[in-house]
Nucleic acid binder design. Structure first.
Lengths: 180, 180
DNA sequence: CTTCTATTTAGATTTTTATCTAAATAGATT
DNA sequence: AATCTATTTAGATAAAAATCTAAATAGAAG
């Protein structure tokens, strides 16, 4: 068990411990980004970016949110943090979010939809991370992005609208900013 | 400036990002440890330990507190933390300890003694880290360990006793446990 | 269905890293 | 001073990783 934590930690450290990858992390932390843009901003060939991304994925640091575009995996980071810094058994104060992530998701994929309302809301909050603010998405693109998580994109799309995470107007969708 | 932070971060991540070095860090975090013991507990040759230690030193993760023995460099860790996570200029709440470290020390070396009492006390608190609890040190060994920091070991030894960090009894010194 | 473009995979080359053996250095002991 | 022991440095070898070129794959557009 302890061995697993150490492995997770070294994988993380090695993945993050390089100028280019750190740069990539910095960029994807600000929002989902595609490979060519990463290559341009970091200043390396696209093939190199792909290799870096793969390592970062292995380390649970990024996920593919839309086709060919990657984003910082905050849930994975959260998991790592818990695994490494908090004792595994006692005083583990798991949040609803964390429990839902653990039960219903597998990296970027949604294993199945929960039934309970509070849990559905968490899933919706998680799904909406695949979209940027102040961008208009045609329904087709919304479907596409959601399909990355689960085949039943229509159900997930409805979920996002029902819980107020996205707004639809004349077939165009926009992310609704959460109230702070 | 930003570049420096990135370099410090990658150096740190790479240094920590390996099973053996992580193991070494875990051991020296519990107390000063010599090379042969590290080699034994980690299960590699001593020469390999030396190389690992050198990388850890470069990354400011360990310091040589007594001859041939190493310890986790908590001040360096603190510095790294500040450099990476806190904005360099504004809202930087530097503690007395941090300021004294920055002014009067250079890694494991003491550049010169402060004049002010509060600062002297911090230096003494820093020096006493080179000693373990419940161990009796003859004066000669105390001098030896302190000489790693500065040639004037007698002055530093007096400082430790004056400020109640070490107790002397018949030429034998012992670390005094700080009151929590 | 075919072409076009974007992205990923494979293979080869160069660089970096880890580990070993053997030699050098530094302190302690006699 | 000379030897003895503990530790570090050098040099060599092997393993891992980074980056490139070129080929393969997948989706979109015509």
């Amino acid at each position: 068990m302890e061995q697993e934590k150490i492995k997770a930690l070294t994988t993380f450290l090695q993945a993050a411990g390089q100028r280019e990858r750190l740069h990539i992390l910095g960029i994807v932390a600000e929002g989902a980004t595609a490979v060519p843009e990463l290559a341009r901003r970091v200043g390396v060939k696209e093939t190199a970016v792909v290799k870096h991304i793969n390592r970062l994925k292995q380390a649970n640091l990024v996920t593919e949110t839309a086709p060919y575009t990657y984003q910082l995996n905050q849930d994975g980071l959260e998991q790592l943090n818990r695994a490494v810094f908090h004792r595994g058994d006692s005083n583990s104060q798991e949040t609803l979010r964390q429990r839902v992530m653990r039960h219903y998701t597998d990296g970027p994929r949604l294993k199945k939809l929960p039934e309970n309302a509070a849990e559905l809301r968490e899933v919706a909050a998680w799904l909406v991370e695949r979209f940027d603010s102040n961008v208009s998405y045609p329904e087709k693109e919304v479907n596409q992005r959601l399909a990355q998580a689960h085949p039943d994109f229509a159900e997930m799309r409805r979920l996002l609208v029902d819980w107020g995470f996205m707004a639809r107007s004349r077939g165009i969708y926009q992310k609704v900013e959460p109230q702070p």
